[in-house]
Design a protein around this nucleic acid. Structure first.
Length: 910
RNA sequence: GGACGCCUAGCUCAGUUGGUUAGAGCACCUCGUUUACACCGAGGGGGUCGGGGGUUCGAGUCCCUCGGCGUCCACCA
């Protein structure tokens, strides 16, 4: 066996093991009879994406779940893939074309799409390579892309089916229009941002009474040419006589009526509202009610068109706003302006203000809304943390139809064909069902020459909402069977961020319920059983990480400096459940340091002596002789069982950082700082040596198993180096982890089950040792190992000390610990194993000693006063539970004894 | 406007169903090359739990209220 090197060098180890895992097909997820299935579908990153800290957290957690499932003997499948990300990807390629001074229209639809595919094969999907660096154990042979042929068939089949079931319709409605990408967006893709703008007060002159005006306020004076009316509230006394008269529109001058509509808020502004149906949702509604015309003054790119009139036509919308203000000022129509804070909707992707725009679009009435609500409300699907349930339900309760068409080229072209020569915009909803006018199918019409296909593509989310089952071959029976659909669906856990709960999570639930296993109970149709929402990674100042802020470190750089395992352990251990994460690079130090600690503990084990047979738990147990156990052996086994149990609980409850902290504390404090240190004495004695080494092997083996899902590379390496792999393929992942009860049972069978009383005595020894060290530090002899301690102990305490003497001498750094009936006049402390004095030739500084003991006495007296007060309180004595009362009494007795001893020590100092 | 979350040591967070005058990691101070590890070891200082009120024998832990930070939803021109 090669010698373990002095410090852990991740780079080579990571490369070696990842290649070995891939070679062996260790990540392949296959149905296995008699074994439970565990499956996860990755939230597909954009094909344009690169690895961010968010991905690191999210995918580390998925990998933890998957690797743990494998250790538990389940057949685990993690399906990776990427999302074609319509707008984002098209934008990337168009940006490249702009560099060549071209637009997508120079190429035409077909050629442009070819270009996108070229881009994708050259530069797309880098992120999947980066996930491998992180150690993600995805089944790469199953990598999916939402534009793959098979996946596309699923998307078209779903659309066709929804159309057939009457959930899809075409309608001319107000949509969120993104003038940058020139497409409609869904409501979810619009972000409201507070903006400081100006509220303009504009006068409209009465057509029948020159010199008389009605005033309105507006933030968008450039839309005035689109005004078709002025509206007031019907009950507004100020305007009671005005309804029915008409006013002059001050830009692109024309006569427009004054109408009454109760949607107008008389308390806002002047109480009179300009009605611009083409460019405002509320105005549109009012326009419809009153049969008003729609005057659309904007082009698709939000420049103004000829309907805006000669002065504004052709201008960009914000330039037009300035110009409109100038024109209004010049004509005297501008009555005032004031600064105004208001919210404006921005395109999530392009970050420009959206325009409400009246266009023909395809809409989806969400299917299975009630079932989707029930599935989560009734716990068929469990959200972690549970509070997201309410957010989810609230959205579903107020759900609006989904605009699923996009005026893009990159995406799934909507599988609808119009009969040639037909005016598609004159089709009624009833006409949509007429096969002589409209053809809807995945494969297209039989006689394509007579038909024209819809130009629009589907919203990207209208493909990714099928992800949990379209990645498993749906709807093709043969492909589903090959993918193990029956075995792996529904998936086990979805790990994602809460910001896509509407975009993706809710929609996947509805899609699963609608499309999968029709007629079967919801539990069989839902796409996943648990949803774990990670926090959002923020910088030290609490800002979301983003490219534009430049506050997002490159995870690959972090992997270079800290190792993938260090990064994984670090990020998981600082990610509290349910809260956002404040990231700073130094926090990853802890993960790296822990890996180094683990490495060196294993190195120490290797240097301590040849390992015996480590190839199976049975072989290790066979090397343990419980009759040689001392208190420390009991304690470490007890802690091992408790930690195993705690990790099981944490993973069951999705408390990943708590799990990592439990492992950290156990390994660093219980094992390294105490057990390994006392081992150094135990290994000196032939009598205890073999059992001590075997116990170390047992602990390390279990620790590596528990840690492997978190830090797979280093654990795999150490597993192999310490001989746990045995013969055969021997990956950790091929091992069945022993659960706490199994491990406990094995120890019981051996007669090696830990005795809690022995374990408790170790806690007393730890306090004894730290007091001894403190006395030495205080006297400036911390590094001397030849000092003598005197201890005044009762027989039981002395028996404990005597039985563990060699270890205690080593831990305290002393040459001798001797029993004395009287400790006084020296540096001393009261410990659970008696009063401890440091016997030095030099006189103790009595003043300093008195000060220290006095401080301790003072604190103790405070405690005593509190306890006495409680016990003197009749209400406490009569109402507190017996156990609490008993505890308080015992505590008081101990405190009093300790006080007496401290006082005696003080007195002895003169 | 509505909902949710958070406010505990300098920083980031734990504190299970209320029960010793609160813990961890990092940072800080002192000491230390003892045969795994300075990506280390030992020792130490440092919070009264955002403010106020209430319930209770007892509250960081339950209730009310005020304040601050954050997120989501809705959005009046």
């Amino acid at each position: 066996m090669p010698e373990i090197t002095k410090s852990y060098e991740p780079r080579e180890v990571e490369r070696k093991w990842y290649a070995a895992w891939l070679d062996a097909g260790a990540f392949a997820g296959r149905p296995a009879a008699g074994r439970e299935a565990y499956s996860i579908v990755i939230p597909p990153p954009n094909v344009t994406g690169v690895l961010t800290m968010g991905h690191v957290l999210n995918n580390t957690i998925q990998d933890i779940l998957i690797r743990r499932a494998r250790l538990e003997g389940r057949s685990a499948l993690w399906i990776p893939g990427t999302d074609h990300a319509g707008i984002a990807t098209q934008a990337v390629v168009e940006r490249e074309l702009r560099g060549l001074k071209k637009t997508r229209h120079h190429f035409g639809r077909e050629k442009f799409i070819e270009r996108v595919w070229e881009w994708r094969s050259e530069k797309g999907g880098i992120i999947l390579e980066q996930l491998r660096r992180l150690g993600a154990s995805c089944d790469w042979d199953r990598t999916q892309f939402t534009m793959d042929a098979a996946y596309s068939r699923a998307v078209l089949a779903a659309f066709t089916e929804l159309f057939r079931r009457g959930h899809v319709y075409r309608g001319k409605r107000m949509v969120n229009w993104c003038p940058a990408s020139m497409t409609a967006l869904s409501d979810e893709e619009v972000i409201m941002k507070p903006q400081s703008g100006t509220l303009y007060r504009v006068r409209y002159e009465f057509a029948d009474a020159a010199g008389q005006f009605v005033q309105v306020v507006t933030t968008r004076p450039e839309t005035i040419p689109g005004d078709v009316a002025i509206a007031v509230h019907p009950d507004d006394p100020r305007y009671s006589g005005l309804v029915g008269r008409s006013v002059w529109r001050p830009l692109n001058r024309a006569e427009i009526p004054v109408i009454a509509d109760s949607a107008v808020d008389p308390k806002f502004g002047t109480g009179a509202l300009k009605i611009t149906p083409a460019h405002d949702r509320a105005d549109y509604e009012i326009g419809v009610r009153h049969g008003l015309p729609v005057v659309d003054i904007l082009n698709a790119d939000a420049t103004l068109n000829e309907l805006a009139g000669p002065e504004l036509s052709g201008m960009e919308r914000f330039a037009a706003r300035k110009r409109a203000v100038e024109l209004l000022t010049a004509s005297g129509a501008l009555a005032g302006e004031e600064a105004y804070q208001h919210n404006v909707g921005f395109s999530e992707r392009s970050d420009v203000p959206i325009e409400p725009r009246l266009t023909w679009q395809w809409w989806l009435r969400y299917p299975r809304v009630e079932e989707a609500k029930a599935a989560v409300r009734d716990g068929l699907i469990r959200f972690h943390p549970a509070r997201w349930t309410k957010v989810y339900l609230h959205w579903l309760e107020n759900i609006q139809d989904w605009c699923i068409s996009r005026q893009l080229w990159w995406g799934h072209r909507i599988p609808v064909w119009y009969r040639k020569g037909i005016d598609r915009d004159s089709l009624s909803e009833a006409d949509l069902a007429d096969p002589s006018k409209l053809h809807v199918s995945a494969e297209g019409p039989p006689n394509p020459d007579n038909w024209v296909q819809e130009d629009d593509v589907l919203d990207t989310w209208a493909s990714s909402w099928l992800w949990p089952f379209a990645t498993m071959g749906w709807p093709d029976a043969g492909a589903m069977s090959k993918a193990g659909f029956d075995y792996f669906y529904p998936t086990s856990t979805l790990v994602t961020a809460p910001d896509i709960i509407f975009f993706w999570v809710a929609r996947m639930i509805m899609a699963g319920l609608e499309f999968v296993r029709p007629g079967e109970p919801p539990a069989r149709r839902i796409p996943f059983r648990d949803v774990y929402f990670t926090g959002i990674i923020r910088d030290t100042r609490g800002r979301k990480m983003s490219k534009s802020l430049g506050n997002s470190p490159d995870p690959l750089d972090l992997i270079e400096s800290y190792g993938a395992d260090g990064l994984r352990f670090g990020i998981v251990s600082i990610a509290p459940q349910g809260l956002d994460i404040r990231f700073s690079e130094e926090r990853i130090d802890g993960g790296r340091n822990f890996c180094n600690k683990l490495w060196n503990a294993c190195r120490f084990r290797q240097m301590s002596g040849p390992s015996g047979d480590n190839s199976s738990p049975g072989a290790i147990l066979a090397r343990i002789d419980p009759t040689k156990f001392d208190a420390d052996d009991h304690a470490i086994l007890e802690r091992l069982l408790a930690t195993t149990r705690e990790v099981e609980r944490c993973l069951r409850e999705f408390e990943f950082s708590a799990a990592s902290q439990a492992l950290y504390g156990f390994f660093w404090n219980d094992f390294c700082d105490w057990y390994v240190e006392v081992s150094k004495a135990k290994l000196q004695a032939e009598d205890t040596r073999a059992t001590c080494l075997a116990l170390q092997d047992l602990v390390l083996r279990q620790a590596l198993l528990l840690l492997h899902p978190f830090i797979p590379f280093i654990t795999e390496e150490l597993w192999s180096q310490l001989g746990y792999a045995g013969t055969g393929r021997g990956f950790i992942a091929d091992t069945r982890i022993e659960d706490a009860s199994g491990l406990a049972a094995a120890l019981v069978a051996l007669g090696a089950d830990p005795d809690p009383r022995q374990a408790a005595s170790v806690e007393r020894m730890k306090l004894f040792v730290s007091q001894a060290r403190a006395l030495k530090a205080e006297r400036g002899v911390a590094s001397r190992r030849d000092v003598r301690f005197l201890v005044k102990a009762d027989d039981a305490a002395w028996a404990t000390l005597e039985a563990n003497l060699p270890k205690l001498l080593r831990m305290a750094g002393a040459a001798e610990i001797a029993r004395r009936d009287d400790i006084g006049g020296m540096s001393a402390a009261v410990t659970p194993l008696g009063t401890l004095g440091l016997d030095l030739a030099a006189q103790a500084d009595a003043g300093a000693e008195r000060l220290r003991l006095g401080k301790e006495l003072e604190a103790l007296s405070g405690h005593i006063a509190g306890t006495e007060a409680r016990l003197a309180n009749k209400a406490f004595v009569s109402k507190a539970p017996a156990a609490v009362l008993e505890g308080a009494r015992r505590q008081l007795a101990e405190q009093l004894a300790k006080r007496a001893e401290l006082e005696r020590l003080l007195k002895s100092l003169g």
